[in-house]
């Protein structure tokens, strides 16, 4: 009962923030709404016992990426952009795509929970000893070591790439 209450609370945050993000004219307002939405997603992670991802979501998204967004919004001058039309010219194609996604969702909602039937989980694969972070570290460094290293190389490439782009002369 309590869980359902929290689910509705966080879902309201997520969807309200997302709707405001998409519809606000001012880019700073959009960014603030997106922060609200991301915090709602973090709450849903906590509701599903993903404590590690909860912390990463707050630190990385809200603390890192969104601050970067706000920096860039303030670096570029959007005053004249705010006066123009908000939506672009291909709105009817966009409407078509969004309607298709909506129909898909409505179909699954109508079919109800049976649409999401799943095989029984094999067995509790990971022993419940230790916390969520310990389990993730275990899986990350045993099964997913190579993707982890590739991700670190990707981050290095991103750092070098953004420095190269931002500097006028190397």
């Amino acid at each position: 009962m309590m869980d359902a209450l929290f689910f509705y609370l966080f879902a309201t945050l997520v969807l309200g923030g997302a709707i405001l993000t998409v519809t606000r004219r001012n880019a700073v307002h959009s960014a603030i709404s997106l922060i609200v939405s991301l915090i709602g997603v973090a709450g849903l992670y906590l509701l599903q016992q993903a404590e590690f991802l909860f912390a990463v979501q707050i630190v990385l998204y809200v603390g890192g990426i969104m601050v970067l967004f706000l920096f860039v919004i303030m670096l570029v001058n959007l005053d004249q952009a705010a006066k123009q039309r908000r939506f672009n010219r291909q709105w009817w194609i966009a409407l078509l795509c969004v309607t298709a996604v909506g129909v898909e969702i409505a179909y699954f909602v109508r079919k109800g929970a049976s649409a999401f039937s799943m095989a029984r989980p094999p067995v509790a694969a990971v022993a419940n000893a230790g916390g969520n972070t310990e389990q993730i570290a275990d899986v990350l460094f045993r099964q997913y070591l190579l993707p982890f290293e590739i991700a670190s190389v990707l981050l290095l490439v991103a750092v070098v790439g953004s420095v190269v782009m931002a500097k006028k002369r190397i």
Partner: peptide, 11 residues
């Protein structure tokens, strides 16, 4: 698909 500003598209 709807918005015009690159920043909002990123969000």
């Amino acid at each position: 698909l709807f918005r015009k500003s690159i920043i909002t598209i990123f969000m």
